[in-house]
């Protein structure tokens, strides 16, 4: 059993090395689906952000979760304004930000810079918001969001809306040898436990004139036959 278990584990390692894959550090927010390397594989967060949904055969593990927000900005006429997360990023009307550390984004059309600072690592924690004028850098507004990052601010005719969108850092794995490895480990543990607890007995027989002498751990079920000898 031990040898069979060991062989199964080795076979499973070969299968996973040849046909399996693993993606680390995937950041998921809201219910967005992220495609994975192989075929039609995907992974997404559940509606409440506490778990994951994924395609068959994929195992998704949440390694870390924390606060995040979805941000949009409207001008006085109700028109959506472009937002920039970094200087070379593509402008978007809505940003989804994982608050793993202090984060800045810009509203170029309104000449505003916004700084977001999470208060804790809990998924629905509050965040401190500071809004600066650009390019002078003068602070215009400093507020705290509601639980989860929910907030609406009006600054210089611009309405900034923050909606909670907690993030999760996910490990996605496809391992075709998973069940083989599990079976191999169980067989190996059972076989090894059995052979350690019930190790082989040794006994010696020596024929003397009219009898047979026995030494060692002679099994009791053989004793009747030994008397016949």
């Amino acid at each position: 059993m031990v040898h069979l278990g060991g062989l199964l584990v080795l076979f499973s390692l070969l299968l996973s090395q040849l046909f399996g894959w693993q993606v680390q550090g995937l950041i998921l927010q809201s219910e967005e689906r992220r495609s994975l390397p192989e075929g039609d594989s995907w992974v997404a967060l559940t509606e409440n952000g506490s778990g994951t949904r994924h395609s068959p055969g994929v195992v998704a593990f949440v390694e870390e979760s924390g606060p995040g927000v979805r941000v949009s900005a409207l001008d006085g006429d109700g028109e959506a304004l472009q937002l920039l997360l970094t200087a070379d990023a593509e402008p978007r009307t809505e940003l989804t930000i994982a608050l793993r550390e202090d984060t800045y984004f810009a509203v170029p059309e309104a000449e505003l810079i916004v700084r977001l600072m999470p208060r804790s690592e809990e998924p629905y924690s509050r965040a401190d918001v500071q809004i600066y004028s650009s390019p002078s850098g003068q602070e215009i507004l400093q507020r705290v969001t509601e639980q989860g990052g929910q907030a609406t601010f009006e600054v210089r005719g611009v309405t900034l809306t923050f909606v909670p969108a907690p993030y999760a850092r996910v490990l996605a794995t496809y391992n075709p040898g998973r069940w083989v490895a599990g079976l191999g480990i169980v067989i190996l543990m059972v076989g090894l436990g059995g052979s350690l607890m019930w190790s082989g007995r040794r006994f010696w027989l020596r024929e003397v004139e009219d009898a047979t002498e026995v030494a060692g751990s002679f099994p009791s079920w053989l004793q009747g036959e030994e008397e016949d000898l």
Binding site: Q22, V59, R178, G182
Partner: peptide, 12 residues
């Protein structure tokens, strides 16, 4: 075994 169940690989 726990790792295989939770993360899909032996040593993850």
């Amino acid at each position: 075994l726990v790792n295989l169940w939770q993360r899909g690989s032996l040593w993850a």
